[in-house]
Amino acid sequence: MNDTINLLLNHRSIRSYLDKPLTEEQISIIVQSAQAAATSSYVQAYSIIGIKDQEIKDKLAELSGDQAYVAKNGHFFVFCMDLHRLELAAEIEGELTAEIEQSLNSTEMFMIGLIDTGLAAQNAAVAAESMGLGICYIGGLRNKLHEVSSLLGTPNRVIPLFGLSVGYPTNLSDTKPRLPIANVYHEDRYNPNPDQLKEQLHQYDRTISDYYSARTNGARNDRWTESMSKQLQRPKRLYLKQFLKENKIPLD
Rank of each mutant, 00 (worst) to 15 (best):
57 K>Q: 01
142 R>H: 00
23 T>E: 06
112 I>A: 05
250 P>V: 10
210 D>F: 05
247 N>H: 15
191 N>V: 00
229 S>F: 06
190 Y>A: 04
216 T>D: 00
91 E>V: 13
68 A>E: 07
103 S>C: 09
151 L>C: 00
228 M>H: 00
121 A>M: 15
154 T>W: 03
147 E>S: 11
139 G>V: 00
182 A>I: 05
214 A>P: 04
152 L>S: 04
231 Q>T: 01
16 S>C: 01
68 A>K: 14
156 N>V: 14
247 N>M: 12
162 F>Y: 08
183 N>I: 02
120 A>I: 09
196 Q>A: 13
154 T>L: 05
175 T>Q: 11
123 N>Q: 13
194 P>D: 09
133 L>I: 03
176 K>W: 06
168 Y>M: 08
112 I>Q: 03
125 A>E: 13
106 S>Q: 00
16 S>A: 12
219 A>P: 12
128 A>L: 03
206 R>Y: 03
141 L>K: 06
4 T>I: 11
33 S>G: 15
87 E>F: 03
119 L>K: 06
11 H>S: 07
198 K>F: 12
131 M>I: 09
177 P>Q: 02
219 A>F: 02
196 Q>F: 11
231 Q>Y: 11
136 C>M: 09
230 K>C: 06
218 G>V: 04
23 T>M: 02
16 S>D: 11
57 K>H: 14
171 N>R: 10
117 T>P: 05
209 S>D: 05
226 E>I: 06
245 K>F: 13
9 L>H: 10
44 Q>R: 08
112 I>T: 04
53 D>Y: 09
85 R>S: 08
69 Y>I: 04
31 V>Y: 11
104 L>D: 10
104 L>Q: 04
23 T>V: 05
53 D>E: 14
227 S>R: 07
134 G>I: 04
83 L>V: 06
249 I>E: 08
49 I>M: 00
61 A>F: 06
111 M>K: 05
229 S>A: 14
187 E>T: 13
228 M>F: 07
246 E>G: 01
39 T>I: 05
39 T>A: 11
104 L>W: 06
140 G>T: 09
15 R>F: 02
241 K>A: 12
162 F>S: 03
137 Y>S: 02
159 I>E: 02
178 R>C: 09
76 F>V: 10
109 M>I: 01
246 E>M: 01
192 P>N: 04
178 R>D: 10
247 N>D: 05
122 Q>K: 11
61 A>T: 03
188 D>K: 15
13 S>F: 06
241 K>P: 04
28 S>Y: 11
187 E>P: 09
148 V>F: 09
202 H>I: 15
149 S>M: 03
74 G>K: 10
122 Q>E: 15
219 A>L: 14
210 D>P: 01
249 I>M: 13
119 L>H: 04
238 L>A: 13
161 L>Y: 07
77 F>Q: 04
209 S>E: 10
203 Q>L: 13
39 T>Y: 08
186 H>P: 09
185 Y>L: 15
121 A>E: 10
45 A>F: 02
156 N>D: 14
233 Q>G: 09
110 F>W: 03
170 T>D: 14
199 E>Y: 01
238 L>K: 12
168 Y>F: 11
157 R>I: 03
125 A>G: 02
180 P>V: 00
237 R>S: 05
251 L>K: 08
75 H>V: 11
11 H>N: 08
186 H>V: 11
155 P>G: 00
29 I>T: 14
137 Y>N: 07
